[in-house]
């Protein structure tokens, strides 16, 4: 697994993709820092984190689109799948590579927190609560998009499918109140990423929300392994 993790992280930074991804995250965070904190004259980072939700939603598919589809296109999956490495190890290696790049990119918020802490007293537990929320949310989205990239050898299709999922996740909150059937509207509400994420940005560390994100992550990682296994037998 470490061999794949190592190669994937290198691959991100051998092409411009890794730099652009990290750069864009820093750019947005910087802008929100200016808009909410400097201009708004506050040390509260809630604004930054809640707007980053949408940014992450639309940047993650770009980060993950190449993970499994590129290997299919280049036929390098033949190298990976015929080496003495399990499918689970391949999926985890690729997953954690994307997670590492994502973590690096959201260090932007930590940079902002450090700047704020120099100007006034920072409530670190609250900031870390925000940060944990962002990590969990991003990791879950990476797992979902990784699963999508296992279906196609086209990176573009993988990215578009990722955007569709992101869009659906945004839409889900506006959809729930309009549906009359109670079970469906309750179900949609329960699936809402935004509701779960918002509680983190309010400074609430709710166990149920953590379990929600972790379980969806694990579920989609299992789906990805299953999807690769299925392709072997079809």
């Amino acid at each position: 697994m470490t061999a794949i993790l190592d190669r994937e992280i290198r691959a991100y930074f051998q092409s411009p993709l890794g730099y652009i991804f990290v750069g864009v995250m820093f750019l947005f965070t910087g802008y929100f820092f200016f808009a909410y904190n400097l201009y708004g004259n506050t040390t509260d980072m809630r604004g930054i984190f809640s707007t980053l939700f949408a940014v992450v939603l639309f940047l993650i598919p770009i980060l993950t689109m190449r993970l499994l589809s590129e290997d299919r296109k280049l036929k390098t999956d033949q190298l990976l799948l015929t080496a003495p490495v399990s499918r689970t190890a391949i999926v985890l290696g690729k997953y954690f590579a994307a997670v590492c790049v994502f973590l690096l990119s959201i260090m932007s918020t930590m940079a902002v927190a450090v700047v704020i802490s120099h100007l006034s007293k920072t409530e670190w537990p609250v900031v870390f609560g925000h940060f944990i929320g962002l990590i969990l949310f991003g990791n879950t989205l990476i797992a979902i998009c990784l699963f999508l990239s296992s279906f196609t050898e086209s990176q573009v299709i993988a990215a578009i499918a990722g955007f569709a999922v992101s869009f659906f996740l945004m839409l889900i909150d506006t959809l729930a109140p309009v549906i009359n059937i109670k079970i469906i509207s309750r179900g949609l509400e329960g699936l809402s990423f935004q509701n779960r994420y918002t509680s983190f940005t309010l400074g609430i560390l709710n166990g149920a929300d953590i379990v929600f994100f972790l379980s969806i992550t694990v579920m989609f990682l299992c789906f990805t392994v299953a999807s690769m296994e299925k392709r072997r037998w079809s």
């Binding site: 051998q14 280049l74 036929k75 390098t76």
Partner: peptide
């Protein structure tokens, strides 16, 4: 394999 499994950027 028929098409060597190479990573072109490496």
């Amino acid at each position: 394999p028929e098409q060597p499994p190479l990573y072109p950027d490496m």
